[in-house]
Nucleic acid binder design. Structure first.
Lengths: 139, 139
DNA sequence: TCAATAGTTTAGAACTATTATAATGTAGAA
DNA sequence: TTCTACATTATAATAGTTCTAAACTATTGA
C-alpha cells in the first residue's frame, strides 16, 4: 500500500510488469513479518478482504505460478485436493497435522541433514523435502 | 487368478467383503514380485488388460481408498494433478523425476535416519517421508 | 435352503481445482 | 502519443475425484 516501490523493482527486475494486481498480491504475500502457507482459495479470500478492486481468479493463478517460477513462492508437496504454497522460500521442512489439516514449518536447523546414499544415473538432486505427518496423541 | 483364497481371507479379515472386483484388484496390485507405484488411471488400464469384465471407475476409487484405509496401500505426497499410490507399504522414501514424472523408491536403508529436533505439543509423529526431487543433469 | 439385510457395484451426474481461450486493457518503448 | 507485447478478465473447458440412488450380491440366521 505505502511503499510499493520495492515490489515494483522486484517485479521489474525479474521481467514481470508491475501491474496493480501483481503489486497487490505482493503486498498480501510479502508484507508480513512471518511467512505463511496458503492455497489459491485462501489467497482469493485475502485479496477480497484487502481490496475492493477484485482480481480475477485466472490472474491469481497466473500470478502465483509466475511467482513460483521466479522463486518467490514454493509449492509444498502434500496429498491434498488443492495445492499449498509457501512464502518461505528458504530451505526448510514441514509438519502436516492430519487432524487440523494444517501445515507447520520445521526450521532447517531442526532437521539433521538428510543423507541419501543412492543416486539416479543422469539425474541431479533438485531438492530434498521432509514431510512429517503428525496426529493427535490420542488417536 | 489361481489362488485367491489368500486374498479372500485378507479381505474378509479386514472387514471387506471379498467381491470379485476386489479380488481382481488384489491380484493386480499384490500378485507381483516387485511393488510398484500407480495412479487410478494406471490401475484402470491394468484392469482392462487383465480382464474382460470391466470394473466401474467408482469401484476402482472405492477399492483403492478402502485398501489405503486398511494399510494395504500408501498414498505418496507429490504435487501433482493426480494421486499416486504405492503397493510398498513398508517405510521408505522416494525420488521424483520431474522430467519423466516418474516415482522411484529409495530403500529405507539408503536414507540415514531423519532426526527432527522439534515437536508439536499434543501431537505424535505418524510418519516421516523424504521426497527427493531430481531432474536431468543438463537442465 | 432361502429370505432378509447390510454392504457393494454401477452409470452417470455433480463437483472442484485448475487451465485454456480470446477479447479487452495497459505498461513501457519509440 | 502511439504502438506493441504483455496482462487481465470472464467464461468455457478440462480432468480428477466424489456423489447419488438404483440394482446387485455376500452373508446371516431362521
Amino acid at each position: 500500500m505505502l511503499n510499493n516501490s520495492h515490489y515494483i523493482d522486484k517485479l521489474r527486475s525479474s521481467g514481470l510488469r508491475p501491474t496493480k494486481q501483481r503489486i497487490k498480491i505482493c503486498e498480501i504475500l510479502f508484507n508480513t513479518e512471518k511467512t505463511f502457507h496458503f492455497t489459491i482459495n485462501d489467497l482469493v479470500k485475502k485479496i477480497s478482504k484487502a481490496t475492493n478492486d477484485k482480481i480475477s481468479l485466472a490472474t491469481v493463478y497466473n500470478t502465483v505460478h509466475a511467482f513460483k517460477k521466479k522463486g518467490y513462492l514454493k509449492e509444498i508437496p502434500i496429498n491434498s485436493d488443492q495445492s499449498y504454497f509457501d512464502t518461505n522460500t528458504s530451505h526448510h521442512h514441514h509438519f502436516y497435522d492430519e487432524n487440523q489439516k494444517d501445515l507447520i514449518d520445521i526450521d532447517d536447523s531442526d532437521v539433521e541433514p538428510v543423507k541419501i546414499n543412492t543416486r539416479i544415473p543422469g539425474k541431479k538432486i533438485k531438492s530434498v523435502e521432509v514431510l512429517v505427518k503428525v496426529e493427535d496423541i490420542n488417536s
